[in-house]
Write a protein that binds this DNA or RNA. Structure first.
Lengths: 216, 216
DNA sequence: TGACTATAAATGAACGTTCATTTATTTATG
DNA sequence: CATAAATAAATGAACGTTCATTTATAGTCA
């Protein structure tokens, strides 16, 4: 018996994602997709149930990959500043290295398909985050706020910077906006300051001051 | 001669926006739209050039309204903390009061149509912001950072909170997440702390300390 | 090894439907 | 009565999906 060709399925996935990113969900036609991949329309229906299943399948795969990439080298027991930095770097790196996939996920997040979000999909991810936040609060490294407030302050600024980068421009038309390490660290520093309790802040300031004294 | 019916145009606009929010751009069919509004398909083409013109027209109108609402009571010469608070309140209020329009704008922002963004559309808005930021920096109320860094830290957290609110849930499935004044102020406080220079921060802390003493 | 067979992959053409838009005509009104 | 709004009906193209058929190959047995 004949076996399925994994390369063919991957080609369908790649081309579909590319088309969606470039022309929106509306631009993804099964017949055009088949033509672009170089297969018969019917072939697509061997690998996917229908158009929606194809898109949702792309969503599942790319979500998984992004979550995985974001947690590389991360450990919920890390110090707050260190753990946050790891996640920022991972996320920024992934978005910059996989702009198409990042754009696809952003697009699906604001589409009606988002309602098909299964509970318990990113559960591991969220659970790791919860442990991380709880520990940091107990150690006095993180202000005691609702998790949504934490999330908004801790990550939304990064996502906005990434959006500027991917869109190619910030608030001024020129020059082209490029998210580099310096900008990211500058922003991360502000965010850490926002989320660090006053007590720990003065301590850190004192430390910095001491360092400055030593080296001056 | 017969005159155009402004109510008819508005009905087309309302129904189109509603359909897009509920079923995505793919769900907006000119024939269905005509049926829903109760007019002939051809009638729509009297008021709008084609499908794209209809959508772009919605975009222009809603963008204008949101920008307008965001600047109510705002003056670029305000103190940093005060000016930022006005904008946060305005924006949150508008998004909560106009969830459909807010969702529509988010949706179009992540669609390929976004490429049709005309330069010089929100120019007044951005210019007012630039004056505001420059003044705050000169007065020592705001850290000296690139405008994109400022924007990311100052507004992205609010937008994330609003997203949680509109989506109906935060990071935990239950209970339903509701953005209230307390949560907003709590977050705004963190953001202001992030963007306030160290020098001004200690001054403010001293002031707060003094107040506490007076009333204790 | 080499022919046979069972089986699933793969196909091109076609299905009925819906799409955005147009045309020819009627209707309402300054 | 002139003019533009409004319409019903129709246009060809494109849509997602299916069907009848062909093609390739893993397993079997000589």
């Amino acid at each position: 018996m004949r076996t399925r060709d994994p390369k063919k399925e991957q080609a369908i996935r790649d081309t579909a994602l590319d088309t969606i990113v470039r022309h929106g969900f509306r631009g993804l036609s099964m017949q055009k997709l088949a033509k672009d991949v170089g297969v018969s329309p019917a072939t697509i229906y061997i690998y996917f149930e229908d158009r929606e299943d194809l898109i949702l399948s792309l969503w599942r795969e790319e979500s998984r990959r992004m979550a995985e990439a974001t947690l590389v080298g991360f450990d919920p027991s890390m110090s707050f500043a260190e753990g946050l930095r790891v996640q920022w770097k991972n996320r920024a790196r992934w978005c910059i290295d996989h702009p198409r996939e990042a754009h696809f996920l952003e697009q699906i997040r604001h589409s009606p398909l988002h309602a098909h979000d299964e509970p318990g999909k990113g559960r591991d991810f969220i659970e790791a985050m919860r442990v991380f936040v709880r520990g940091a609060i107990e150690r006095g490294e993180l202000v005691r706020v609702p998790v949504e407030v934490y999330w908004s302050v801790a990550f939304a600024p990064l996502y906005q910077l990434v959006k500027f980068h991917m869109h190619g421009r910030g608030l001024t038309p020129t020059p082209r906006f490029v998210l580099d390490e310096k900008l990211m660290n500058q922003t991360l520093e502000l965010v850490v300051k926002a989320l660090t309790p006053a007590a720990a802040l003065t301590k850190t300031a004192a430390k910095h001051h001491a360092h400055k004294k030593v080296y001056s």
